[in-house]
């Protein structure tokens, strides 16, 4: 009884959500619909001749071994970035948690890289590892390793993974620090009184209690590696050498903006959109349930 109609029908709530709805429609639904429509077309660059082909663009994609290879590459890239970025961030967060003096200074410094734009991050790493100019390439050379990511695909992949990881550590760190600090001190103190050392306390108390955060970060990091690393890859390798670092989102750009194959490029975007939807569903289904120990 109580739950029924506290407020009379009013236009106000609709008015209040209208701007948000409008933004969503204009900036999300409309372009997504356009991409979906475009993915059913084979069209020339200028848009003069258009043929509606249903799913043929998708069929072409899945018969293209280079597209499938890009999938595999993206999986390797995203997992490497997610695991490394989270691993380093967790170690740093656990250590900062134990610092007594100057916590703020450490935290601030560790968060800094997050403020660096992807392209700038890419440029930094490109300079450090440039085969002829880079200081790290030079250092590697002195110990007898001939670094050249412009010719060696594995080195190129390693470099973009490192750059993307470096940039994401700050974000993960922030969340891990917050998660660790939200664990009741009494739990940790009780364990300490029972004689558990720092490592044991971390693995048996802190680590299980931050799993919801870890899971959330895993999803966010994978989405990051899938989409937000475009700038880094564009600045460092441009997808090369010989497609060694051409992940899915870069291939969308390459086929659409360099190759002017709009239908094929749109089809790839639609597939990426489907991937995001799946990831988001997973996030809501599992994270909202709160993974707990």
């Amino acid at each position: 009884m109580l739950k029924r109609v506290h407020f009379g029908p009013s236009l106000l709530p609709f008015l209040l959500v209208a701007p948000q709805i409008a933004v969503t429609l204009v900036f999300f639904m409309w372009p997504a619909g356009q991409a979906l429509y475009q993915s059913f077309l084979i069209q020339d660059a200028f848009g003069f001749s258009t043929e509606f082909v249903w799913f043929e663009n998708f069929q072409i994609l899945f018969e293209d071994q280079y597209y499938l290879a890009s999938f595999q590459r993206t999986a390797i890239f995203s997992l490497s970035v997610a695991v490394m970025a989270m691993g380093f961030a967790l170690v740093l967060a656990a250590m900062v948690d134990r610092i007594v003096k100057g916590v703020m200074a450490f935290q601030t410094l560790l968060i800094w890289p997050y403020a660096v734009a992807p392209v700038v991050a890419g440029a930094l790493w490109v300079f450090m590892f440039d085969p002829t100019l880079g200081i790290f390439a030079y250092a590697l050379n002195t110990i007898g390793y001939d670094w050249n990511h412009k010719l060696n695909g594995n080195e190129a992949m390693l470099l973009v993974v490192l750059a993307a990881t470096w940039k994401q550590i700050a974000y993960n760190f922030l969340f891990f620090v917050a998660a660790i600090q939200s664990i009741p001190k009494s739990l940790i103190e009780a364990a300490a009184i029972d004689g558990a050392g720092p490592m044991r306390r971390f693995w048996t108390i802190i680590f299980p209690l931050i799993t919801p955060t870890s899971f959330f970060l895993l999803v966010v990091n994978i989405v990051y590696a899938f989409f937000d690393t475009f700038g880094i890859i564009h600045a460092i390798t441009q997808g090369g050498p010989a497609k060694a670092t051409e992940i899915l989102v870069y291939k969308v750009y390459n086929d659409g903006f360099i190759g002017l194959d709009l239908g094929g490029s749109a089809a790839q975007s639609v597939i990426l959109m489907a991937i995001v939807i799946v990831i988001t569903v997973i996030q809501f289904r599992f994270i909202e349930r709160k993974v707990e120990y």
């Binding site: 084979i42 069209q43 020339d44 001749s49 043929e51 072409i60 194959d261 239908g263 094929g264």
Partner: peptide, 8 residues
Amino acid sequence: AKFARANR
């Protein structure tokens, strides 16, 4: 072939 098709 793809180009020929798109520009028929």
